[in-house]
Amino acid sequence: MSGGGARLVVVPTVTVLAVIKARLIGATKGHQLLKKKSDALTMQFRQILKRIVETKEMMGETMKQAAFALTEAKYAAGDNIKHTVFENVSSATIKVRSKQDNVAGVKLPKFQHYTEAGETKNALTGLARGGQQIQLCKSAYVKAVELLVELASLQTSFLTLDEAIKTTNRRVNALENVVKPKLENTISYIKGELDELEREEFFRLKKVQANKKKVADRELKEKLDAAGRVADKLAARAEEVVSMLTANGKDEDVIF
């Protein structure tokens, strides 16, 4: 029994056995549920992975277009336009709001870009030269920001899910490899102990029975002996009678 691995330290009684059995049922159910959760998360995870890879590929193209839009703006408006753009920075007009999505009990942070109200300072930049290109460049980069914020969202979900899946799997593994075997070991230990007790009881009963039989035998023997003695006595008496009869007459056989 001791070779069966780790078990809980318990008093092996029928009551405890019932408790442990209930716990095993609980652990098994928990294991199944967690396994399901893990599967759900993994599915979500895989979808996000697919979208990350797609979006990252798209990002390459979008950024390339944006970079070239800037080249076109610089060509039309002059290289110095960048200084004007840097001077015009005050408060961000594109910002990010975060919210949370719930997947199988895991809170996934999500980013959402939004544009703050108000005229941007660059509306008139390049007024006499290249203004149109600057606006085109601006929209190209706004598009890039939108994509990048979406990508950031996916990436954050990816990391959160990754973490959640690892935790869940750790629990699944713990239930599967530690908790459940431990409970099972405990159950078999208790069962073993109980069997042992039962066997001892049986042996004792047998012993008692054997004792009882011995006593009974002896009594029987005594009774038999006593009976034997009576029989002997009777036999002796009978012989006496026979000898007396024989002494009285030879024909006495005929009588019997």
Binding site: A123, L127, A128
Partner: peptide, 23 residues
């Protein structure tokens, strides 16, 4: 060229017709 560009680039902005002409 500046007059034409200013016109095109100020379409749809806060710059009024009068402000535009002044440039």
């Amino acid at each position: 060229r500046r007059a034409i560009n200013i016109t095109i680039n100020s379409i749809g902005t806060e710059l009024t017709r009068d402000d535009r002409r002044k440039l």
